[in-house]
């Protein structure tokens, strides 16, 4: 399959492709297909979950920061086999998918997200609210994230964070 060239696409086509990627991404997590989750990223990627409290001050400490696809895989292996936590579901609500910049190789996008969490009690709570700052590239296997940075407003993390956002 030929690799897409962003500059050849109309704004509407591009918007559609980007929204489709975001939808597939959150669906993968919400449907608990976490083994597939690293496939949304290129090999040499940056995945980061950082509080707005730190981001706004220019401080680097993140809840999770992975600078390779292999690290993403390790996270999931750990989640499935090592970590101990309360079972839960996520439900991502995304909105405001806003393309900020386009070059031949990279699309920069900002997107709002909300993660609802349901634990075994059956109650659903707002778990994390924030924005994605993404850099998307085209590959032979379709669009992938070169960077996905989740900047969260909810800087008080409830109990713990194990499932990616």
């Amino acid at each position: 399959m030929a690799i897409l060239k962003f500059s050849d696409m109309t704004a509407m086509e591009l918007q559609f492709q980007v929204e489709k990627l975001q939808s597939n991404y959150v669906e993968c997590i919400d449907d608990d297909r976490l083994e597939q989750w690293p496939e949304f990223f290129v090999e040499d990627c940056l995945y980061q979950i950082i509080s707005r409290e730190n981001e706004d001050r220019g401080l680097p400490v993140s809840a999770i920061v992975c600078d390779s696809n292999a690290m993403l895989i390790d996270r999931i292996v750990s989640l499935r086999n090592a970590n101990v936590y309360a079972e839960h579901f996520y439900r991502h609500i995304i909105s405001n998918v806003n393309i900020k910049g386009v070059t031949d190789e990279v699309v920069s996008v900002q997107t709002n997200y909300l993660v609802l969490q349901t634990r075994l009690s059956g109650a659903t709570e707002i778990y994390n609210s924030g924005k994605y700052l993404d850099e998307i590239v085209a590959t032979e296997d379709g669009l992938k994230f070169k960077q996905k940075k989740a900047v969260f407003d909810t800087y008080q993390i409830q109990s713990l964070m194990v499932t990616p956002i």
Partner: peptide, 8 residues
Amino acid sequence: VLGDQRQY
């Protein structure tokens, strides 16, 4: 200081 994290 490199940053804070808050866990409830």
